[in-house]
Design a protein around this nucleic acid. Structure first.
Lengths: 363, 363
DNA sequence: TGCGTTTATTAAAACGATTCTATATAATTC
DNA sequence: GAATTATATAGAATCGTTTTAATAAACGCA
């Protein structure tokens, strides 16, 4: 591994090695050294012998360009800001993996910010990221109920920005979302195909667009097949900023339903965390999952596959969404550096039904 | 929110605003502007009227200092590298939260790197981080079986470095670890107090220091109380780089034990992921948890509290460990900037028994 | 021989801040 | 009233690169 600077023997003995040191050692000017080491256009006029001498001098001295100086001139730093709303939400994890992986391929690195679902913190972090002149910005907006204008403010920032998990009506901010409606349609279709007709629903918070879209999928399926939905078996999660309350909220809401009706044979939850809370409530109420009640979630976060019974759910392609976000941001960055204009992108990713143990055909 | 630069009306119309623009507008020199805006020592000689005029000029123009130029001179960038070995391991999540939160307090930000448990990737990332001149380095070494020398190489890098989750014998690299031995001692003590005497163990991989230390805690407890450990009921997880295989491995190893003996009343797993795998194996084998078999893990990762029955475990104070790492790194950074020498720190954090549903007194 | 290219190299000017060294005036001391 | 000190500002150097413009030699060709 090439440690900077790899001075023979003792540690970093004071002076840092600059391009001028390389110039002196190799016997050429700093200009030539720069041209050679960066393989700049002018390098084609430089004979191989010169190149080799410079390169070996650089290596011998353990020269590493000062990235601050470099950035000062080029106004680039190969860094993008990645803002999550709550890193402890398992939903973020795989998205982060997808982002990290794609950035790595491009030799970019992420600066991480976690808004803790707090608006002032979000604002402060945006400020900090822009101060640092990140070249792009990716926002993982899982649970965000924060005022949409807050993101709209970002339009002014003039750097390529993409939001994952939330539709932006903005002309300059891109968004990557999952097909909520289609996913919900498929989930309900799965329950229906298993013979379930009395189905309970724990919907998402009203303020959340995903809630609306998933519910639209449910309604569309119901309409297409004539399935009846009993309003007494439909409850909403409370408006709530903290995604970690998904589980207790799912628990409470399922208890609500159980108070009113007990004759449903399946429950469809807004998301996996809600479903896990529901599972607990069902089991506590003495209903076996899936024998007496099938259960389906949405997202496919990590814990879902670990519980017993493992949760059937609709998977969001989270790594792919992270990768897509990076690709959009990188396009934006390249466009900017070539003085091209680029349009905001709106991309809806397909979801995928993941069959596991928590759903079962009705007997 | 203060967007950079907040030009009135249209977007970022070309030119960036420099300190000289502020100088011109305010009618003072760049020097004075710098002194005022940074509140440098010399600022005490500058009358309030001057200060106010400069500040309002800066605000009016939307001036934000160019961080590249600033860093070039100061050789600082208020950034630390944070390397995880696998971000999809839930163990990382809360540690990251702890790190992020403490850095935020200090107006530092993390650059995130994920080694994917691959050595070449780890090396490349170290290189990238050092190129970027991060001021410090935090390594979250949860599952790391990678050659210890790899980390030892970091000693040469001359920046404050701390490893979380792994003891370093190095003189220059700090480490933050949890009290594995004490935690295991307490866990076994809990089972013992509930009346369990026939206890099965799924130990960690042999190569892992945590495995050794936790087992030492077990042995010490057994020795202290005269508890007998049946070697037929002790298995080891395979050497394994991927923490996400913890669950399937725990499942397989538990099946191994079940093949040989079925008369144990409790199982102690190396960590939570292993325990979750064990839970699945036990349930599949028809053993009710905790009625017929108590189960205890280690770590207290997020999924542990979500499963039914919720897992009793030994909590690592992960947020606190992240915070401690930051504090050590920041101390190192400050020491360096004041030309003080600072010793590597070795800090062992206490663990905490978390009682939930998966353990129960023997009947 | 002379003129236009092509090849090979470099000095000097950015990039945008901070800070050291001067310098000028005003206030204070002896 | 001269010497000293405190106050207030500016010029220029510096950080380490990259890039522009310039120079000089070598080459091809009429």
């Amino acid at each position: 591994m090439d440690i900077i600077p790899p001075m023979a023997g003792k540690r970093n003995s004071g002076k840092t090695i600059t391009i001028r040191d390389v110039a002196k050692t190799s016997g050429f000017s700093a200009t030539t050294v720069s041209i050679v080491l960066n393989n700049a256009p002018l390098a084609r006029y430089i004979p191989q012998t010169t190149k080799t001498r410079i390169q070996s001098a650089a290596k011998k001295l353990g020269y590493h360009p000062n990235i601050f100086a470099k950035s000062l001139r080029s106004r680039r730093n190969h860094t993008v800001g990645v803002m999550v709303f709550d890193i402890t939400d398992p939903y973020c994890t795989l998205i982060l993996r997808g982002i990290e992986n794609s950035l790595y391929q491009a030799s970019f690195m992420p600066i991480l910010a976690d808004a803790h679902n707090e608006r002032p913190r979000f604002e402060r972090y945006v400020e900090m990221l822009l101060e640092r002149r990140v070249e792009g910005l990716i926002i993982v907006a899982n649970w965000l109920l924060i005022d949409i204008n807050l993101l709209a403010d970002l339009e002014k920032s003039d750097i390529p920005t993409v939001v994952i998990g939330r539709e932006m009506q903005s002309k300059s901010i891109s968004s990557i979302i999952v097909d909520d409606e289609g996913g919900a349609y498929a989930a309900l279709g799965h329950l229906y195909a298993l013979g379930h007709r009395k189905i309970a629903f724990v919907r998402g918070p009203r303020g959340l667009l995903s809630s609306k879209n998933r519910w639209r999928g449910v309604q569309r399926f119901a309409h297409d097949t004539g399935l009846e939905i009993d309003p007494k078996m439909v409850v909403d999660l409370p408006e709530q900023l903290d995604p970690n309350l998904g589980v207790p909220d799912g628990y409470r809401m399922t208890e609500e339903i159980l108070k009113k009706r007990r004759n449903f044979t399946a429950l469809m939850a807004f998301d996996d965390m809600t479903a896990l809370g529901a599972m607990r409530a069902l089991i506590k109420a003495g209903m076996k999952v899936p024998e007496q009640c099938s259960l389906i979630g949405f997202d496919d976060v990590t814990p879902s596959s670990l519980v017993v019974p493992a949760l059937t759910t609709v998977r969001q392609p989270m790594e792919a969404m992270g990768a897509a976000a990076v690709s959009v941001v990188l396009d934006g960055i390249n466009a900017a550096s070539e003085h091209r204009d680029v349009q905001a992108v709106y991309r809806k990713m397909p979801s995928e039904l993941v069959l596991r143990e928590s759903t079962k055909a009705i007997t």
